[in-house]
């Protein structure tokens, strides 16, 4: 665990840890549940030292039972607690799919019972995890009304969005990208802050082409933008940060300015969030588009294990560069 009294550089992973620690200290209704999060500190050590500080019940090691503990979190949330559950890997969220989509997502709509809870889902590839430890399952939940979905790309957003998620009155799935855990660092404010849910962020302004993306792919887009600026092509990188509710205004504002759009994500292409964004742009920004909407996403396969396969699978900086060059020609 880290202390936050002095300005210091933290990783994306440490930012998550800080957010949890600060929220637990701030609000005693906040408690954690998950597999191996106690003395062990979680598969990624995000809750290392937490049980010593907050006790066995507020940092609750559960049986290997995703549906069971997500259901339990729903029950506790309805009783006024603020549970944060950890999926050891986002892939295992499929075991809790029913509790999330049928119980958590529908309760408020059906009978007005708020379910203020957070599910942390370490997701994404690039870590040699293979088909069961690399998934991007956000698309499943994107299609389930009643859930909020967030997916930060930087330590600042990771901390601020997690705090906002814990304070939100709805079930929030917090997709944290495993590839970013120790690869991105930043100096964070010492004072308490949140990043509001539902607000995208323009991570780089540019006049020529909008790249609409989130999580790890933000960094691919930023790298592509660096390369393309030398060719005189200026990318605008829109980091969605929140997937539901989608900040449509920021997306439209950007595309109305640039008149060209690339939608980029790591999830499989078909039926992914990018498809929805492309459809929205076709509906709302058709008159201002100067070229076709480009989608860059993973192919429609499970995430493969072997290095050349996974490299092939994941969208790359070069894919963005190539698409941008094509679009720039329009």
């Amino acid at each position: 665990m880290t202390t936050t009294s002095v300005e210091h550089e933290v990783t994306y992973l440490e930012a998550i840890s800080e957010a949890l620690d600060e929220e637990m200290a701030r609000d005693e209704r906040v408690f954690l549940m998950g597999e191996d999060i106690g003395p062990y500190g979680g598969a990624f050590r995000i809750t290392e030292g937490f049980q010593k500080k907050y006790g066995e019940w507020r940092v609750l090691d559960t049986p290997l039972s995703e549906s069971g503990f997500v259901g339990a979190a729903i029950g506790a949330a309805m009783m006024g607690m603020r549970p944060v559950v950890e999926m050891q890997f986002a892939d295992f969220i499929s075991c809790a799919f029913d509790q999330i989509t049928e119980v958590a997502a529908k309760n408020h709509y059906r009978w007005g019972a708020a379910v203020p809870m957070v599910i942390r889902a370490p997701f994404g590839g690039g870590v040699h995890g293979g088909p069961f430890h690399s998934e991007c399952p956000e698309g499943w939940f994107f299609h389930s009304p009643g859930l909020k979905l967030v997916a930060p790309s930087t330590p600042y957003d990771a901390k601020g969005l997690l705090k906002a998620a814990i304070r939100d009155n709805n079930p929030v799935i917090y997709f944290e990208h495993k590839f970013l855990y120790r690869r991105v660092k930043a100096i964070l404010p010492t004072e308490d802050y949140i990043v509001p849910i539902g607000k995208a962020d323009v991570k780089r302004a540019g006049r020529d082409i909008s790249v609409i993306t989130y999580a790890a792919m933000v960094h691919q887009a930023l790298e592509a933008a660096e390369q393309l600026t030398k060719e005189g092509i200026e990318l605008e990188v829109v980091d969605l940060r929140t997937l539901v509710p989608l900040d449509k205004e920021t997306i439209y504002d950007s595309v109305r300015k640039t008149s060209k759009a690339i939608v980029l994500h790591e999830d499989n292409k078909t039926g992914g969030i990018g498809a929805e964004i492309a459809a929205l742009l076709a509906e709302e920004c058709f008159d201002c588009l100067d070229g076709p909407i480009h989608r860059i996403a993973a192919p429609d396969t499970p995430v493969p294990f072997s290095t050349p396969l996974e490299e092939f699978f994941l969208p790359k900086v070069n894919d963005v560069v190539a698409a941008a060059r094509k679009l720039a020609a329009y």
């Binding site: 259901g71 339990a72 729903i74 029950g75 506790a76 949330a77 309805m78 549970p83």
Partner: peptide, 10 residues
């Protein structure tokens, strides 16, 4: 049933 266990946990 899992939801009830969470109520009890609270």
């Amino acid at each position: 049933l899992p939801v009830a266990t969470g109520v009890a946990l609270a």
